[in-house]
Design a protein around this nucleic acid. Sequence first.
DNA 1: GGCGAGGATAAGCATCCGTGATGGAAGGAG
DNA 2: CTCCTTCCATCACGGATGCTTATCCTCGCC
Lengths: 296, 296
Amino acid sequence: MDPHLLRTYVTVARLASFSEAARDLGYTQSAVSQHIAALETDLGLPLLTRRPVAPTPAGERLLEHAGALLLRLDAARADLGRFAAAPRATLGVAASPLALTPRTLAALPATGVTLRALPRERVPVAVATGEADAGLVDGVAAPSDPLRLPDVAPLAATGVTEEPLAVVLPAHHPLAARPGLRLDDLVDARWLDAPAAGIPLDRLRAVHGGPAGRGFRTALRYEGTDTRTLAALAAAGQGLALLPLSATDGVPGSAAVPLVAPRLVHRTELLLPAGAHGEPSGPVAEFARRLKSRHP
Amino acid sequence: MDPHLLRTYVTVARLASFSEAARDLGYTQSAVSQHIAALETDLGLPLLTRRPVAPTPAGERLLEHAGALLLRLDAARADLGRFAAAPRATLGVAASPLALTPRTLAALPATGVTLRALPRERVPVAVATGEADAGLVDGVAAPSDPLRLPDVAPLAATGVTEEPLAVVLPAHHPLAARPGLRLDDLVDARWLDAPAAGIPLDRLRAVHGGPAGRGFRTALRYEGTDTRTLAALAAAGQGLALLPLSATDGVPGSAAVPLVAPRLVHRTELLLPAGAHGEPSGPVAEFARRLKSRHP
DNA sequence: GGCGAGGATAAGCATCCGTGATGGAAGGAG
DNA sequence: CTCCTTCCATCACGGATGCTTATCCTCGCC
């Protein structure tokens, strides 16, 4: 199970074609064919159906493993590369949209910053593979609980902010006048499904757990990343949305009611490559220090 | 970064010797030397000091990555091997000591079972690499929260039992008469540090989190796996121990008081290789069904 | 200062890997 | 139905790779 073979395998599976994978990888079609054959004889299993080219059940399984393996391999290379590379003057930050709160934004240095918004699950990957020097992720958790992040590589996560969650609903909604809402009050409501812009509902179910959390009924699905749009959709009565309290301000026609039960908070964490062989003078360390220092 | 090279690297680092690593791997010393040289030129870094042979800081880092990588590689191979292998009639179960509750033991089939007790963190590894067909792990978590397990490979975890935690202390202890204890009541107490037999204190601190959790003062450290011995040590006044309530019975001179705050439970989970290409007739599926079915 | 242990280096040879050419099967157009 | 195109499998070959044997070099030790 040479990583080389695995790489061509995932490429073939992704492109559903030996020839295109060969072009993509800079090999000949013959080489790709031999790679796949080598993998299949090594494992003693057919991994792909030909014509059409598609993974077998075993091949699907291998795809999961191979993805994680190649990721970790890249992460290791990037991590070791940090030892050799000269310290850079710029700072690349990968962040999930809702992790960009006033507080995290204020901690960014004034110059030389590249900020990249990514889906939540890709932020740890970006930090691990060195695409970004630091990461900011958000998620829901019990108070002072760390987020559950996939451990693609040894990363150091430190909490940055915690703030209440709020349900966004139309201003004229009967529940809008309440001081606080319980999730149990809303089991029959229709939710906006906005995995990129809001809190993904499945994640909420996982944290909330238990029988009360089963079955969020979803109304509209919004695939963009803009929080204002999401709040506007909620204001328009398209469904309920769950957002950190600070992100609910100033959308006309909407009301935000804090979620009081279950006790959950919106948490953002700073992600750095673990080990911290960083000299304390670089822009990364500077950023981390500013984030940690002033705890209002 | 060929896995082959990584494997020899970790062997050299473990044995602190090129020649012994060569013997161990069935290579010549020359080959091992070339492997290390190849790795070092590839990464552009010295990984080992010679004479004595020891990893450099970068090498330490590589060790972490390499360990995880080789583990995942073994896991992938084992997982794919399950597709080809004939279904076996025996059942290998890896379990952490405290996961062996009456309930889990009762679910074991009558014949053909190999039960292996392992440290907590090795159970997922054993399941992933196919050393065991199923795993039972225990840990502390908030009620109905899943355990935090290292994801060495895609494993399916399902909750099996949840029960209260109890503080074990001498029967004559002033707190022994209380109906329940808060962890904050015990910040000044001395604890028994028993990572294998009891609840590891650092894990508790991680779950509990927050400022109140800092600083468990440890008294005696017990490296065995026997729960009765641990309770006996607590009865003898050597320190406090934390155990699932059901494991605290019948040790003379000891008293067990349930832990009421923070709200934590002792949870055991069943670990199976994800994907579940298992035919529903094997002993593994039978075991899983018996564990899940009767929820008293 | 000599010696021994252990790692580095050199040359040789088998194996492996990727290329180019060719074969063969499936699907589509007429 | 047949031809043709597309695409994967197979074969033969040349260059590169990897492991071995043999030898050298360097450090540590008495």
